[in-house]
Write a protein that binds this DNA or RNA. Sequence first.
RNA 1: GGUCACUUAGCUCAGUUGGUAGAGCAUACGCUUCACACGCGUAGGGUCACAGGUUCAAGUCCUGUAGUGACCACCA
Length: 915
Amino acid sequence: MEIAKTYEPKQAEEKHYERWETSGCFAPEINQNPDAPAFSIVIPPPNVTGSLHMGHALQHTLMDVLTRRRRMQGFRTLFLPGVDHAGISTQLMVTRELLKNEKKTPQEIGREAFTEKVWAWKAKFGGEITRQIRREGASVDWSREKFTMDEGLSKAVREVFVRLYEEGNIYRGKRIVNWCPHDKTVLSDLEVKEEKRADGKLYYLQYPIVGAERKLTVATTRPETMLGDTAVAVSPTDERYQDLIGKMIALPLTNREIPIIADDYVDAEFGTGAVKITPAHDPNDYEMGERHNLEQLIVMNDDATMNEAAGADFVGLDRYAARQKVVEKFEELGLLEKIDDYEITLPVCERCKTVIEPLLSTQWFVRMDEMRDLALEEMREKHFPRFFPETPNEKVYTTWLENLRDWTISRQLWWGHQIPAWYDANGKVFVAKSLEEAAQQAGTNDLTQDADVLDTWFSSALWAFSTLGWTGEITETEDLKTFYPTDVLVTGRDIIFLWVSRMVMTGLKFVGQRPFDDVIITGTVLDKNGQRMSKMKGNGVDPLVMFDKFGVDATRMTLVSLATGMDVRWNEAQVENYRNFANKIWNAARFCLMNSDGATVNLASLKPEEGASIADRWILSRLNKTVLEVNRALEKYFFHEAVQLLYHFFWDDFCSWYIELVKDEITGGYSSAETEVSSEIAEAVVSEQQAAARTRILTILEQALRLLHPFMPFLTEELWHTLPGTNANLHNAAYSKAAKTIMLADFPTTEESLIDERAEAEMQAVIDLIGKVRNIRAEMNIKPSERIAILVAANADLQKVFGENQAQILKLARATDLKLSEQFDAPKASARTALAGGAEVAIPLEGLIDFAKETDRLEKESAKLTNEAEKLNAQLSNENFVARAPSEKVEEIRTRVFDIEQRTKTLNQTLEALK
RNA sequence: GGUCACUUAGCUCAGUUGGUAGAGCAUACGCUUCACACGCGUAGGGUCACAGGUUCAAGUCCUGUAGUGACCACCA
């Protein structure tokens, strides 16, 4: 059988995903074992407006690696996909479209028509992200795909809302909130980001005191808010102002008089020590207003223009225009003391970057105390969730919970879960799961539903159980029973607060069980300059471009190799490297297939027969050790380590050494003169021994493909199907009835008895010998075509090892003759070097050797050894070391010193002989 | 202001009970060696940011300094 010379990923990617999906391989129902343990992961639902970025690709790949491995191990596996309705993003996007296409605003077409447009938009474009997830190879169960606004999930939302309300944990109240004047909605603290502005100003305004000549100067960064001032505060201990406390101020530009109050909040050291108080437009002022019973005067509209309360001169002005006008007027009045430059950090809307206006407003809130305590207790007592990496994430999570404040959940949007609260004609509120129930409570049908919708994260908070069928009415489903709690959550640092903590809290409260066991927090993929990738900067690397350029599998391997939890810079050279690795695998398979006549994958060949060669025992030992370590690494979520192990095993152990060692045996060992012999003739003479060797290498390759499959699903599937003897019998027992696919093959387990340290040491000696000879060849500029003789002096054990591998040594060192003996008498014109175990190798180079060069080479090597020996001897001559270090450590050092001394002695003798 | 992380070969990064510093890329030299030039062979390259400390032994533990970055809080 012959396959192409280079792996072309595209074709395999298209062909296999569709087959996997349509044949039900992703659904847990494929598992026929009623006693199978369950494994489940819910995908963090990407925004319906989103398109795939590197962060997704990284997280999805990690989840898929875990899922595919568990599936192969026979777990009943569910990797559940879904999409988030993403309230603000989606509404903004559709609003923009509407304006562009129909020149209309949402208000003009009305709520109902608008939400219909959004659903239409979703139907048309919302599938983009799910198509991209398919492209990644993610083995998610599409038959269970969920959307946060599905009926079931919406029911869960209403149920949770009503229950929290009935318990008094949801309330409606007037608070200072973060208001985005552009999106015209309230935002939670987590949706507000900060922006440093160097060009800020601090304005010093003089306020005249009633009945006195004296003026009190206040400093502010937002002069326009003075129109809403209802007091000025000073520190109660500030001696400068003692006599003013209780006096009134004639507030300029208004005809109001406001009191001077004393409050501990005020820092006498900052600014002038006097603070203007605007309870309706500043959170701290609001608190102070509450303490002192101050009037709350709202002077702005929801678009940050000034309202009537600001006065006739200002009404209708934008906040910044109003600011300028206030400053001008103060200047006219001679009340502007000064303006200082001041670096300021402003709160901005996470989405539109508009400066947030703190605003007194009536909103819905969740009181988090009870759920917060549930989560903290779970951490204290059961150390859950377990974060990977634990530092700093566990502490970040715990500290945040400890300082948790009420959650603003209402949003002034149309796209989302409308708040299940209705008002009668008198404005009395009825919270219920439906209009009917509200009407029953109210005793009238004349009800109006609250216009607001819930924060997108409210429904996301229920994701771990709402997606498994929990609606509040239905609290037990097969899926919940089987798959809840889920096993592991994989997500980014930025949503520990927004999502992880909230899922924990709602899971504990409403299901009475944690939503997942482990939380893997991935690092951020940065651009090559260490900058965050972002749409605005345009420095993002599109995973789909990588898929096209290097293949999905190569991209996945790159991502997994980066998954240490640290932030990492994207480096395309790495993807290229794994593309090359994919091609290496392809070609190793190609070699095995070209020589597969008379052979078939056969698991029995994974146990060495009586008298098996060192190379065979060695590769089986390496395979079993690799399986052991890969499994260990994945249990600890050390993804990068698993990749390293597999890369090393496949490229170095399997390709560089094993294939080369057994090549002649596999191919029949025809010499170059016989190259023209047609393959048919070669086939005809496959001996039993050769067939066994071919079967063995084929089977080892097959095991390697299984190990690699969770990481490189497409390549491994493509190759697996070409191997003779692969069939559904290789599946895990749970999938014996399913159609042949590597994704259901049993994931390799370790046969510990096959880890053969002796074979590994013996093979290492052979590898070292070949390496030393190759080194001499290169250093002495011996042409590859030049054949040489090798003399080896070694003890009987080593002689036996070298003897058994004579043919391989000759071939790989390009030699014609290998002479083994206890001692040798090499000609003077030889290049020599010492091997481990007191052995020595010599290569007679009559007429080829450059004595000066050889002396130079040996001296360099001798110096290296001397240096090493000195370090070790220094340790041994330290009494404390010998006395206190573990004896096996001391012994180890002694052995090493002995070996080095032997080699040095040999080298020096050689050097002497050269003189 | 608080908390935390990072600083290892030219580059990107590994290095988890403290015990001979690793990989890939890049570089140099040599190879049409019958799976693969997306390849093969060989080589060079690191006082593990700096300063102290603990220890027989420190890239690894502790303290401090410098630089970089993240998050939280505040910012009249």
